[in-house]
Design a binder for these strands. Structure first.
Lengths: 158, 158
DNA sequence: CTCAGTGCAAACCGTTTGCAAACTC
DNA sequence: GAGTTTGCAAACGGTTTGCACTGAG
């Protein structure tokens, strides 16, 4: 899906709700779709600040992010660092996340067999499944190696 | 595992780290193990306040909860409501959670087949798996029924 | 024109922290 | 006694909100 289609989709989403298309909203949307990384609200705020043109206020960034999540344009993820991160959804398949406890790197994976087992468990419990979060935490290849090389920090850490 | 054993385990945990066993820490531990519900820091603070005896300060409750998580006595879970909830671990099997989006009810389930697939995916990505969070969100039986009975709120909600 | 949106700064809220007094070992 | 822990209240940090001004439709 290219930008033009995303714009159209966003415009009709706004129209449906009687909301207005403003320069700030368009810039948030464009910048969010210009990255394939996960980004925080603050990150987006800084990106927009660096760009040419008037900066978008933090308040508006937060308000627009919520709007984009509601509209299904973005998904949010809580990596446990105290701030939410976002990623755009359109054109993406659903996927889960692996987060490195040391460097914070986030990798993605998806496994239809896991999805199926989730549905199965929900059905058994009588739950109507809406969404799920599967986050694996551990150490990425590089950080795992570093940890092994450091002499017994595990027992002396704190 | 009964309280006496938990106490012993906690005492040796503290000793190992050169920490002291205080009345406040013991009361937090006891109260946390006296419930089978998930509870927040504030909840525990209020429970202790209601109990006979001097109340334990909020700061101490927070500090002790962190300690209990580090020691593996409790696990924390982020249900997405803005505050963490805790549950005791000893004597519990590992399990995952299903959270009702409407009433907040948390149910537990576990499925070794999912665990195995998680390990498999991590291995493939070169991650050293430490822990994971699997949280299914949706509507519990009761809330799902209520939602179906209400005339088209889904499209007019907001 | 009208009502929604923006920017600002202040408020929020769960959690953390600095510090002096109190307590464990 | 030495060194930890506690309680208090203030600080924190990400996020939300009230309000007067601006701007889209």
């Amino acid at each position: 899906m290219h930008l033009a289609a995303i714009h159209r989709s966003f415009e009709s989403f706004l129209r449906e709700r009687g909301l207005k298309l403003t320069a700030q909203r368009r810039r948030c949307l464009d910048r969010a779709f210009a990255t394939h990384e996960h980004f925080s609200a603050e990150r987006l705020y800084l990106w927009l600040k660096e760009e040419a043109g008037a900066s978008v206020s933090r308040a508006t960034v937060y308000r627009t992010l919520s709007l984009l999540v509601e509209g299904g344009f973005l998904e949010s993820l809580d990596p446990g660092t105290g701030e939410l991160v976002y990623e755009h959804v359109l054109g993406h398949r659903h996927h889960d996340h692996v987060v490195c406890l040391s460097c914070g790197k986030i990798e993605e994976f998806s496994d239809e067999r896991i999805e199926e087992l989730q549905r199965e468990n929900c059905a058994r419990l009588g739950f109507e499944l809406v969404s799920h979060v599967l986050k694996l935490s551990g150490y990425c290849k590089g950080c795992a190696r570093k940890r092994r090389d450091l002499p017994r920090t595990a027992s002396t850490a704190h």
